[in-house]
Design a protein around this nucleic acid. Sequence first.
DNA 1: AAGGATAGGGCAGCCTTGTTGACTTTCCAA
DNA 2: TTGGAAAGTCAACAAGGCTGCCCTATCCTT
Lengths: 181, 181
Amino acid sequence: MRNDPHPIPGGESLLFLTDDQIRRGIEAMYFAYRAFTADPDLILEEIGYGRAHHRALHFITRDPGLTVTALLEVLGVTKQSLNRVLRTLIEDGLVDSRVGRRDRRERQLHLTEKGVALERRLSEAQRARVRAAYRAAGPQAVAGFRQVLEAMMDGEMLAQFRALREAPDQRLAPRRAGSAG
Amino acid sequence: MRNDPHPIPGGESLLFLTDDQIRRGIEAMYFAYRAFTADPDLILEEIGYGRAHHRALHFITRDPGLTVTALLEVLGVTKQSLNRVLRTLIEDGLVDSRVGRRDRRERQLHLTEKGVALERRLSEAQRARVRAAYRAAGPQAVAGFRQVLEAMMDGEMLAQFRALREAPDQRLAPRRAGSAG
DNA sequence: AAGGATAGGGCAGCCTTGTTGACTTTCCAA
DNA sequence: TTGGAAAGTCAACAAGGCTGCCCTATCCTT
């Protein structure tokens, strides 16, 4: 298992599949993810929030009016965990939780002006880094980056990711189809 | 700031730098990182360890005999935080902490057989996913993936990352007197 | 030989953000 | 009307970050 021992008949060089290359990719992913979160983390620290707050603000911005359950599924955490974060955002006047119209058990989540302002500040910081990296690497590299990231996701997660793209302002929730918690 | 308003005179299409594309990249990074850690997380949970244990095992494997301080710098955490994790690994007989030869204040970290076995199991699980993603995306996409990840790192982190590459079995730390590791 | 600097570690205690379990409110269907 | 299911909330615990302070052993310089 030290080096990929499968010179698959097909022509192309498979050197990019050696264990060493894979391991370098794993390390790059680890370091890059730390860099990726570093800028918003600084802002969050100022105001006593954490990454979980940023994530909630992001997906509420992405899909205004989504329910707690829908947000839960996107984030892949338990509702208790999300609830704590959401409660502080609501108490601090960044998120508005409205009783659902079609189902009064549901809460529909929107950002307040203050919430929009913070979300924008956080996103801008994060986007600046990603934009710089994209610009430095060029469009072809970016296409490859996206391809590999998507190929890393499993089926259910990929579906969630694509659902965000395809239904930019649509509720994700109502499908009864079972998805694990 | 909604869409990149800089049609830089230079020719290429800059559509890959729109805020929308950047945001998709950010979301892809978020989901992919979750997928990326999912497989080892399952194994770690079985035995009551966390990601921090995996990271320590990884970098000790990467650079056997490295000191606590060197590991600290690679991981970017505090001594106290690392120490808790390292202590359990040593107590459980996965890591061996030997007094340094050239400097007896230092502790040189090695994996035991048991440690090697666990690290291999964790790495194999993670590599399997990355390898599958690489294979699916192809060598050109992988090159782009790596380019973007490196472009995301800041200078110091990039230096650390490259130091791992260039000195695969060398101490990262002070190099007082050159002695075999 | 003495004193400061460095490597490593321990303890106390804080925070965020995961987790499970138990609970209320609301809806819907038998 | 009643009972189950679903949405959301509250309580308590754990992992693993963090800081602060203290301690020993070991270097290294004076």
